[in-house]
Amino acid sequence: MSNREQELDTAMQQVRCIECLAKVQVRKSAWEQTSVQWTDEALDLCRERPARATGNLPRDQFVGCETLRAAVRDETVQGNLKLADRAAAS
């Protein structure tokens, strides 16, 4: 992998949630694939994340923020969030 490809591969773009002030780093390699890097600060701001988990089993864990998911989808459809593999190919 060349330096240029490495750069594209690792590049994440900032996405803001439309409901709260959380900012996360997002990378999409394809329409169906999304990586999200949170910070502890963004997690604290998230309104969908319960303050306290109801249980400790795997199904009790926070799957992810649906509002943020919609925001990422919108950003992608608008063309603001580039698909990483497409960027590497073009």
Binding site: W31, E32, Q33, T34, S35, V36, Q37, W38, T39, D40, L43, G64, T76, V77, Q78, G79
Partner: peptide
Amino acid sequence: PQMTERFEYEVDTTMPMDLWTRSSARNL
């Protein structure tokens, strides 16, 4: 923090590709 901060990796093919394509085509 790099070891413990939340990271999500998602693959979702349940939203049909043509829906994506249509909405982005419409947008274009």
